[in-house]
Design a binder for these strands. Structure first.
Lengths: 144, 144
DNA sequence: ATAATAAAAGATATTAATGTCTTTTATAGT
DNA sequence: ACTATAAAAGACATTAATATCTTTTATTAT
């Protein structure tokens, strides 16, 4: 479904959003622990998110990562597309280059609805939405 | 979504089913051409399908691959599970080891419906179903 | 200015997926 | 028996994903 990079990116975004109190940032180490993912790998990924303006970073002492309200209100789809591209919500499930209702692969019609609901799910839910669930202890980001 | 191996396995199964006239088999070369996939790679994959009894193979002159009615009536999910395991219809979308409605990841509830419809789609459609679409020219297995 | 901190960037390592080629085995037809 | 055919099996190659480590840059606090 998602690549590991994308999984980590989603979880890291939610974790960063969750720890936003408007003042302090959260560092790579804490993020990696919080989402149970390898530290150096997470570092790479959130650097990329930062470069692509999905999150903010601050260097030096007391530095780290944080998100603006605007960034938190972005749909999760944005994160997914940044990491994995839009294949999940656009491509043919059987990998046909040109698959459409005119020229469908055998699974096209069956898959259309699923692809659409996947797209809706990713478009209609923001980082903030998922952050709230975690804050309310209605969801978790790790298995501890 | 699916691995390349799984994509090829699904397309190859449908292709083999489609060419079944009860008498002759279809060879690797023809299959690979028919589904626009690398010949040697397809060979590996259908060998695996054969070993796992999803298709039959016959060695020697006029040999090749074919499927029984029973094999054609298996849901596509069987092929998917043989190639990629059951992660797609069972695992957490964020990769949590223990994700359930009791202890959900942030996306769990949103994803449940989608995972279920994916499972239904793969369980309720057989190789024969998709084969029919191709035979009726209502679907294609390649982009030529 | 200097030292400490933490991200950015770059280099390297490991593993898994994908793809290709060669040799072996089974079978059919002569 | 011999030859041709085609899958089976095994070895090898390439690429992409995942993971780790080192060096550099920016910033803060002393």
């Amino acid at each position: 479904m998602f690549s590991k990079s994308c999984e980590y990116a989603i979880k890291a975004s939610i974790f960063i959003a969750q720890h936003r109190d408007g003042v302090t940032c959260v560092g790579v180490k804490e993020i990696a622990k919080g989402i149970q993912a390898p530290e150096y790998f997470v570092a790479k990924i959130i650097q990329e998110l930062s470069r692509k303006k999905a999150i903010n970073s601050i260097k030096g002492p007391n530095g780290g990562f944080c998100m603006s309200e605007a960034q938190m209100k972005k749909p999760i789809l944005d994160i997914v597309v940044l990491m994995d591209g839009d294949g999940l919500v656009n491509n043919c499930i059987l990998g046909l280059e040109h698959c459409s209702s005119d020229n469908p692969c055998p699974m096209h019609h069956e898959y259309q609805k699923i692809k659409q609901s996947m797209r809706n799910m990713l478009e209609n839910n923001t980082v903030a939405d998922f952050k709230s669930l975690v804050n309310l202890k209605k969801a978790v980001l790790n298995t501890n």
